[in-house]
Design a binder for these strands. Structure first.
Lengths: 221, 221
DNA sequence: TGACTAACGAACCAGTTCGTACATAACTTG
DNA sequence: CAAGTTATGTACGAACTGGTTCGTTAGTCA
């Protein structure tokens, strides 16, 4: 997520709009993810930047718009990762398992993003709803998923009555919960869902769960 | 969650410690769930009460302790619901399905609780960790779940390698995600996971998923 | 019944927080 | 290189916010 490279310049006033803007976004992402929207302090974000609070208002307009910009960039990262998804050459079962694994890995790799999503939900997705940019992006992975599901159903492998959106919800829920709720879960049940040595266990568990669900014998129904 | 009954008394100063305390907790629960910890305002909580801010500090000590008290009460509600769980007379498959349904229903019925859990996770479960009361309560349902799982495995019905805690995570994740992330999910994918007409679909989906996972044919492994 | 205490209310305070007014320096372009 | 534009830093303030101070009243018990 850190996209600012140090130009290793001496200090003194430098004019580099792109760098300043990107640096503010980087710091703001960390700060909002750490403390929540209301918990985050504009002064604190500015202080961790090589520029001043003035620039936050100059480039983004205010705290609210800054948070929206943070969300927009965070979502664009997933969209990009999804577009690189290459599973259509696999058979349906392997493709879905791969999709689940990619989702799992992405959640694990971006805990800050998970926190931002939690925070945005506490605010009833007000910023996403207001953002034109976020309204336009669907999810590139959904179409791929839809095609795989159709192929799996046509070949008789998949029996479950779900569409791509439902399947996405099912996969995401497990990945999301494991990262987002690890603190309360750990405190209450004494198990760290994100412990490194459990990683493979949960990754396999997710894949098994999804495939078992999709391919379950429903002849008794 | 609303536990304060109106005594229908005329106004003027009344002395009722229990009522005042409970009313503060009720209002604080709503307010924290609505705005998050930092977003919630002590003045606002007081204003929505029939008493004053002074009483919040008198009874709870401060904002932080008030939030902890809110969490403690919210968790005690589930613990109680879990203790009323009566599934051990059912066969393993029916028992687990029932467990999943009860969890599903509880999440749906208590969206405020879900929000509080999200909020607490943003704060790294600091309050739960600090609370003695919350440290003591495990989860009464876990032992029941463990017995069912063992019975299912002994009878050869269940093949999955999971314990009660993992199963609880699996079930909770779907129920939690559906409620907690409904706003961002709805905004991005145009589907309201909590729409009334979809309720049965997702409730069934959860049960099917859990049972399919637990009973999947693993002879090929 | 009168003294004591738990419960309560109004006003206030000190520190914080978002946002802005003003000044100025660094590039760009004619 | 002069004039204009873009980018940047400093200082400040009005409103808010968690927490407290001080005083009062309702219940209760010797």
């Amino acid at each position: 997520m850190t996209s600012v490279e140090e130009p290793a310049r001496p200090n003194g006033r430098i004019r580099d709009a792109a760098r300043t803007k990107a640096e503010i976004l980087d710091v703001a992402t960390t700060e909002f993810a750490r403390a929540g929207y209301d918990g985050a302090r504009v002064d604190e974000i500015a202080a961790r930047t090589r520029t001043t609070k003035r620039m936050i208002y100059y480039y983004f307009g205010g705290k609210e718009q800054l948070f929206t910009a943070v969300l927009e960039r965070a979502y664009s990262v997933i969209r990009q990762a999804e577009q690189e998804l290459d599973v259509e050459h696999l058979d349906p079962v392997a493709a879905i398992r791969r999709l689940a694994e990619v989702t799992f890995d992405h959640h694990e790799a971006h805990p800050d993003f998970i926190r931002l999503v939690s925070i945005e939900n506490i605010h009833d997705a007000a910023h996403i709803t207001a953002s034109e940019e976020l309204g336009r992006i669907g999810s590139p992975a959904l179409e791929v998923t839809g095609r795989i599901l159709r192929a799996g159903r046509e070949s008789g492998l998949f029996t479950a009555d779900v569409d791509a959106v439902d399947l996405h919800a099912l996969i995401s829920s497990f990945c999301f919960f494991r990262v987002a709720n690890r603190h309360t879960f750990g405190a209450l049940f004494g198990r760290d869902l994100t412990a490194a040595e459990q990683r493979e266990h949960y990754r396999t568990m997710l894949g098994d769960m999804v495939i078992a669900y999709l391919t379950a014998d429903r002849s008794a129904d």
